[in-house]
């Protein structure tokens, strides 16, 4: 088993929480894992990404080579496109459809969506709305996205659910329940 994943978004959106849950599930599965994060200056509303590598064999490089990613998980549609050179020929994009506009020259959203739809394997979801519909706060949008990516992760649905329970346990039952609802909403919506 080997999965190379690029997590993308804008600083503050919560991509590292996605990585934390996958990491916890992978560790419990006895998988090898490497996860390169971005800290510091670029966190302030700039583009952020994390390289997450999972494998049943030892992993050397912390970085994913170009054309090597099985999956791009992005909390922002234009940010998903930024890492296309890293995506495998038959790789997947799982992304939020809602633009995060904090720059004056953000492109037309229709053009962004068109480019994503040009990738044969893609899942495009309004994760914030799905979170709300599932009775979870908008902050749980990242868990909706994670739920949608489960079929491509190479880790079973139930193992991810266990990871969510462990990671959010100290925040109380209500938070765990909200995040689990978000995971399910995404899992159902991706419909793969």
């Amino acid at each position: 088993m080997k999965r190379d994943i690029i997590l993308a978004g804008v600083g503050g959106q919560g991509i590292l929480s996605i990585a934390t849950v996958i990491g916890d599930a992978a560790l419990n599965e006895g998988l090898y894992l490497k996860q390169a994060e971005v800290h510091g200056m670029s966190q302030r509303g700039g583009d952020v990404q994390s390289n997450l590598r999972l494998s049943s064999d030892p992993i050397y490089s912390d970085l994913i080579p170009k054309g090597g990613a099985d999956l791009i998980i992005s909390l922002e549609p234009m940010e998903a496109l930024r890492y296309l050179p890293y995506l495998k020929e038959d790789g997947w994009i799982v992304t939020s459809s809602k633009p995060f506009v904090n720059i004056p020259n953000y492109p037309e959203i229709e053009d962004v969506i068109k480019h994503i739809e040009a990738i044969s394997h893609h899942v495009l979801l309004d994760v914030e709305t799905l979170a709300k519909e599932a009775g979870a706060p908008a902050q749980a949008a990242n868990m909706v996205l994670l739920g949608a990516a489960i079929p491509m992760l190479g880790i079973d649905h139930d193992k991810i659910v266990e990871g969510v329970k462990r990671i959010f346990a100290r925040k109380g039952e209500a938070v765990v329940a909200a995040n689990l609802a978000a995971i399910e909403a995404g899992y159902q919506a991706s419909n793969i």
């Binding site: 600083g11 670029s42 170009k66 054309g67 234009m78 930024r82 050179p85 720059i103 020259n105 953000y106």
Partner: peptide, 20 residues
């Protein structure tokens, strides 16, 4: 060999960090 490498679409613009 880079022929299979996908390009970043031209519409993608930089997103520099900013004060909160």
């Amino acid at each position: 060999k880079t022929e299979s490498e996908k390009a970043v679409p031209e519409i993608v613009v930089g997103r520099p960090p900013a004060l909160c």
